[in-house]
Structures are given as structure tokens and as C-alpha cells.
Design a protein around this nucleic acid. Structure first.
Lengths: 215, 215
DNA sequence: ATTATCTATAGATCTATAGATAATGC
DNA sequence: ATTATCTATAGATCTATAGATAATGC
């Protein structure tokens, strides 16, 4: 696993690295719930400290500023997304319905992480430029996983051949369809179950991939 | 035209309605630029007043609170979107490539309004619940315009028949593909021109609509 | 004696308003 | 005399830190 210490980029006053990791996780877990509920700007550092069960003073031993917390939260979320998507990949090792399986697994990850994905859409802009960039890189890496699958299926003949750009854009489309379930949930959730959504969108993607040449 | 006074919902101390309309437009125009650049929360009411060329005191004669300004800004944006999309519709009155024309026009509207659409994605959550709901209704109304076109094309035989839900979801997909150009622009813009994007996505949507039965 | 944590608060904002002034219309 | 605008600021936060205290390890 890529168990890199994602926390390592953020400076701290505290010497014990295990403690740093533990406390930061604890703070991030408390913070993300507040960010989802009230948004980043309306959440105060005091509220985060209280929800994490530490003092405001301690909180600032583990982070330099409020934005640091948001960055770590985003990073944790992407890390979990990536893990989920990677796992989803393993369930699709070729065959006619390989793509359908991948889509199902990916959409289920989005469904499970709905609130978190939405928060990233809303709050990425609140990060300092340097870290905004990193968040976008994470986003791109996850899309890249999908590109990889499509390329393999295309090569193995389980999907019709299409040029590289077309494959890439299809991957973006699938990724965004998963996100769409989170940011249009206020509508979609009223009219479709997640199973309906998976079924209909999978059919649409398959037509999109195989259509126009009657395979 | 639906020249309802969209401003009418927000109370004001000022008696002259024309003046209210004019000043609010002036304030909203200044505010939206700041919101796009710095985000809603990092923009202060003083900055808005200064950019609009009035005093902070006057500003509060036309709005009760900062959130009011954001709401009006969102409403203006949706109003312009709707107008753009409605106009786009008129260019597609049937025939084989009717859908392609609609998609092109719609994507061009998104391209033109890129920054504004992105802002709505990011800041809708900053609105009070009551107004969040209205913004989502606006969003739905615009999607409804697309549903209408697809339904008509489906009925006239210019598109294969499909059930209602499938049509509805296709409309959402097209709408979101337009938005995707705005919120993935940091990546897409580096690899595709808007023309590339329109061409590839139109092909994808057409396969999605006509695929699987080789029409 | 070193490391981690806490309390208390400095300092910097920012929203929204009160009360004074200027502009407009009869 | 009514309506619109401005200046100046009350009042309420909120972030981040300084300095004091508690816990840990040798």
C-alpha cells in the first residue's frame, strides 16, 4: 500500500511522529464532519478543537493554520477514494461485462463517500494555491486509474478500439457521472435509487463505448 | 421575455423601484467579480461597496445582509444561463443533426459563462436554506429545457425512442458535461480546445442516444 | 528537563447600524 | 419634507500565540 505519511508535508511543533499522526487523524475526523455540516468558513477553529476533544492551543501545535486542516482532510478523502477505486479495479479482470463491474464498484464508492466528495467540490477553492494544485493532482490520479482500465479493455478487445483522447475523455465522463450522483443528489435521489442510477448510467456508458459500430 | 423583477423578493428601504433595480444590478456586477476572484467568504461587504462605487451604508439600504447579495448574483447568472439555453433551442428545429446543434450551443453558453457556473458550484452552500432551494429549482428548470428538446426529437423520430427516465437522465448528463468543462477546465483546457471538446462529447452523446440499435 | 497540553487573550477583522448630511421634488 | 447617501463605529467574532501547567522519561 502507498502508506506514505501524507501528513509529512505539514510542519509541527510536536516531536513524537506517532502522536502527530494520531492527533492529526483525530482532528481531521472531527473537522470533516463540521466542514460537511457547516462549510469550512463557518466552522471555527474552536469548534474543531472542541469536537476533537483537545484545546485550541494544542490544535495549533499540530497545524500552522486553519487551511492546513482543510488540506489534510481533502488528502485523507482522496486517499480513501483512491483505495476504494483501486480495489474496484481488481474486480474487473476482463470479459464482456468487465466495464460494467468497474462502473458499479466506482459508483458505489461515490455513493458511500457522497458527502465528502461534495465537500471537496465546494471547498477546494478555500485552499492556498499550492495545495489546491495538489488536490487537483489527486483528482487526476484517480481519473488516471479509470483511463488505465479502459485502455486495457480496449487493448484486450473487450471494448472496441478508439483513440487515446476518446478513451481519456470517457474516463473523465465516468468519473464525473459518479460525482454527479453526489452533487445532483437533491434531485436524483428523489427519483432514482442508487441501483436505478447504476443500471441506467451503465447502459448509457456502454452505448457510449460500443455504439456507432454495432459490435 | 420573463422580465419578472427578480429583485422583488429582497426587501429594501429605498422607495424608487427603478433606482433599486439599477443599484442592485450595479452592486451584483461588482460583487460577482469579487466572488469569482476571492470567493464569497473572503470578500468583504466593504470591498463590494467600494467596487460598486457606493458607500457601505448605501449598500445596506439595498440588501439586508451579505447573503442577499450572493442570492441575487446566483439568480442573475441562472437567468442569463436560461436565456442562453432557450436561445440555443431555437437553432435546433428537427432533422438528423438537431441534437448536435443543441449540444454545441449549450456548450458554448457554458464556455462563455465558465467562471460564473463554477462560482455557483462553490458557493450555493453559503446561501440560507430557503434560497439554496431556489437556486436548485433554477438549475432544474434549465435541465428541463434540455429534457423538452430530447423528448421532442424522440417523438419526431429524429432520435430513437427511449423511456422517459432514460431521456431525463440523458438531459442531466448533457447539462453536467457542460458544467464539467468549467470545473475540470484546469485539466481539459490544457489538452482540448472548446472545439475539440464539443466534437468529442457530441460524438459520445450521439452514440449514447443512438447506440445499441444501430440506427 | 523535555515534551505535550492548557488557559487566557492580543490583535485584527468584519458585518450591520445609528445618526448626520446631501440631493430631490413639491 | 422626503428620499437617498455618507461617515463613523458599536458590537461581535475569530485566528493564532504567549506564557503557565501538567505529563513523561531518564
Amino acid at each position: 500500500m502507498q502508506r506514505v505519511n501524507r501528513t509529512a508535508t505539514i510542519p509541527t511543533q510536536v516531536k513524537n511522529p506517532d502522536l502527530v499522526e494520531r492527533r492529526r487523524r483525530q482532528i481531521a475526523d472531527a473537522a470533516v464532519r463540521l466542514f460537511i455540516e457547516r462549510g469550512f468558513h463557518k466552522t471555527t477553529t474552536r469548534q474543531i478543537a472542541r469536537a476533537a476533544g483537545i484545546s485550541i492551543g494544542s490544535l495549533y501545535e499540530y497545524f500552522n493554520c486553519k487551511e492546513d486542516i482543510l488540506y489534510l482532510v481533502c488528502d485523507f478523502i482522496h486517499s480513501e477514494m483512491e483505495q476504494g477505486v483501486t480495489q474496484a479495479m481488481t474486480k474487473a479482470t476482463g470479459g464482456r461485462d468487465a466495464l460494467a463491474k468497474v462502473i458499479r464498484e466506482y459508483f458505489m464508492v461515490c455513493h458511500r463517500m457522497s458527502d465528502f466528495i461534495l465537500m471537496i467540490y465546494q471547498e477546494t477553492q478555500s485552499l492556498p494555491g499550492q495545495w489546491q494544485k495538489r488536490v487537483l493532482e489527486n483528482e487526476l490520479r484517480i481519473t488516471g486509474l479509470l483511463v488505465g482500465v479502459l485502455a486495457r479493455l480496449s487493448q484486450s478487445g473487450d471494448l472496441p478500439h478508439r483513440d487515446e483522447r476518446s478513451i481519456e475523455l470517457t474516463a473523465h465522463n465516468i468519473v464525473v457521472m459518479g460525482h454527479m450522483w453526489t452533487f445532483r443528489r437533491w434531485f436524483l435521489g428523489k427519483h432514482y435509487s442508487i441501483e436505478d442510477y447504476i443500471k441506467l448510467q451503465t447502459a448509457a456508458v456502454l452505448r457510449m463505448c460500443t455504439g456507432g459500430q454495432g459490435k
